[in-house]
Write a protein that binds this DNA or RNA. Structure first.
Length: 266
DNA sequence: TCCTATGTTGTATG
DNA sequence: ACATACAACATAGG
């Protein structure tokens, strides 16, 4: 489920816990989402700490608690955050539960492609600070995109858009939406795009991120029917701009949807 | 039973 | 060292 805007929405779901003490921690220490961490240490440090602030970047979230405690969450493919009433009994996929007075903050992920990260210290940990600058930031320039596409010249542009080191937060549906709006065929080699196409790709990346945050990121509401998003999920969909049938094929290992009239190979 | 799924990551190959 | 391609991870639902 989660790309840039879905992640932002999920981050805010824990807002009711801000300013509240974490009275207890329940976790599934052997769950794959804790790979590379020491779950018992996480439980020990979080217990008694106060949840202070959170932010999202790319497809990740960072939760800060008192005492220099930093909790990172990645939702993988099926991760979710929720708030449940106090006394809630964790279910199978509820791998991390932060108990507060009157409520519990839940991280669940049945497929366990998500992950938990953890650090203690005065500064945000490197696994957070090394995330690429957001596509809405001033660092995401047309020139940076052009340089990156040149370095990945032979890969299909669809696969390149999924690379988090340059397009943080872009996932499968966003990549298709961006290419559709830019009028670029997903199978085009990244190095073959003209300067005009690179400019369009850069502009549409920002546009899609901005508008997804305003719809999905705020209320989890679907974007309007004018978006490819609303038509791309199953066979038989029609292009909201041209009305022609959409095509779905696997590109770069991911199901890809495009509008053949608007997005052509040379 | 078989296929698909809004994501990464390790590994093999060039 | 770098770029590229793809299997693997784990689970549910159609």
């Amino acid at each position: 489920m989660p790309e840039l805007a879905e992640v932002e929405y999920m981050r805010k779901r824990w807002n009711p816990g801000l300013g509240q003490r974490i009275e207890g921690v329940r976790l599934h220490a052997k769950a794959g989402v804790f790979r590379g961490t020491k779950p018992r240490l996480i439980a020990r440090y979080l217990t008694g700490a106060t949840f202070i602030a959170s932010e999202a970047a790319a497809k990740q979230m960072l939760f800060r608690a008192s005492g220099g405690v930093w909790l990172g969450l990645h939702l993988g493919m099926t991760g979710e955050l929720s708030v449940q009433p106090a006394g809630y009994l964790p279910r199978k996929a509820d791998h991390l539960v932060l108990e507060q007075s009157g409520q519990a903050l839940i991280f669940s992920d049945f497929r366990m492609f998500g992950r938990v990260q953890f650090a203690v210290g005065p500064e945000a940990p490197v696994w957070w600070t090394e995330i690429a600058p957001a596509v809405m930031s001033k660092h995401f320039t047309r020139e940076a995109v052009a340089t990156f596409l040149r370095r990945r010249a032979k890969s299909p542009i669809k696969a390149v858009l999924l690379m988090q080191e340059r397009f943080p937060g872009v996932g499968n549906w966003m990549a298709d939406e961006i290419l559709w709006r830019a009028g670029v065929h997903p199978r085009r080699p990244a190095g073959s795009l003209t300067p005009v196409e690179v400019a369009a790709l850069h502009r549409q990346t920002r546009w899609v991120a901005d508008h997804a945050l305003k719809t999905i990121g705020e209320t989890f509401a679907d974007p309007p029917p004018s978006w490819l998003f609303r038509h791309r999920w199953k066979d038989g969909g029609r292009c909201p701009k041209s009305g022609e049938g959409l095509v779905r094929e696997e590109i770069g290992g991911r199901t890809t949807c495009w509008s053949p009239g608007r997005q052509q190979l040379p």
